[in-house]
Amino acid sequence: MLKSFDNKALEELNDSNASENERAKKGLKKRSDFGYAVLFLGPSLLLLGVFVFYPMIKTLYMSLFLTNNFGQTTIFVGLKNYTSLLTSASFLASLSSTFIYVIGVMVLTIVLGLALAVFANQKLKGIQFFRTIFSSTMGVSVSVAAIFFLFVFNPTTGLLNQMAGLLHLPQLNWMTDPNLAMITVIVSTVWMNLGFTFLVLFGALQAVPRSLYDAADIEGASKSYQLFKITIPMISPSLFFVGIVTLIGAFKSFGLIDLMTAGGPNNATNLLVYRIYQDAFLNGNYSQASTESIVLTIIIAVMTIIQFKVLEKRVNY
């Protein structure tokens, strides 16, 4: 989340080097603070080493071996785990469910988040109340959201089927039909994302100069023209930011899947991280789970690099 700080960081890395040179020019003593660096940086480096770098290398290593039930490596097989994984029908099905889920979540999150932000960005009495409500889903944790939505989508007692019954519409098996179950988890995820997306996009909207809209009003431009020609271009960096953060978050989805569908029905919602969890912790197939973890890492790393590169250029206004 919130990874856009990095592009700034990258830029200002150069800045800080420049100011360092300035300081050196000013004749300040240029000494090494190595001892202090160990004290200030040591704890963080140690933790990242043990819990981020080591496990990454270990996962990569395990993905090149067969493993026993205890997760110990046995036979070196090179890239064979990868070839068998990428030709496995069930993995490819899981990967395609993941892509459907991720795209669905991203598109809906952005469209709805933008709608909330645009409507909250008006000068109306009591608008602050609506803004608070729109941001509120950010405070709802995954287990709570799952409980709420399990109830909304519950086939017999759920709100949706109750309402469908009242309106004489067909009652749908939201949790047991594979396609509907996918919709169920997408909707629940989007709902959870809304608060954060709203806050970011609303903040961006507030930074758009009002004079642009006033000028457009004078020239008689329609509201939809203003939305597509002023609002969206002006906040494109933020749209890109929430888009990619949502994408990365969706690729890592686990909690809602575990709580709402457990990957089912019929593996329809068996997304990548849930599959890793199943293979490692339920089936004891650590080498396959490690291989899947590396696939996940590659996907996330590519996304993150795209994010760095694009945000570095700041997205055209």
Binding site: A9, L48, V52, F53, P55, T59, G71, S293, L296
Partner: peptide, 25 residues
């Protein structure tokens, strides 16, 4: 100021690409 500051900084930067979910095992 210390030697390798930029290198370590990039190392930190790199960790943001590594999802915790892929490292649970």
């Amino acid at each position: 100021k210390f030697k390798g500051r930029n290198f370590i900084f990039y190392l930190f930067l790199a960790t943001m690409m590594l999802p915790f979910e892929a490292e649970v095992i």
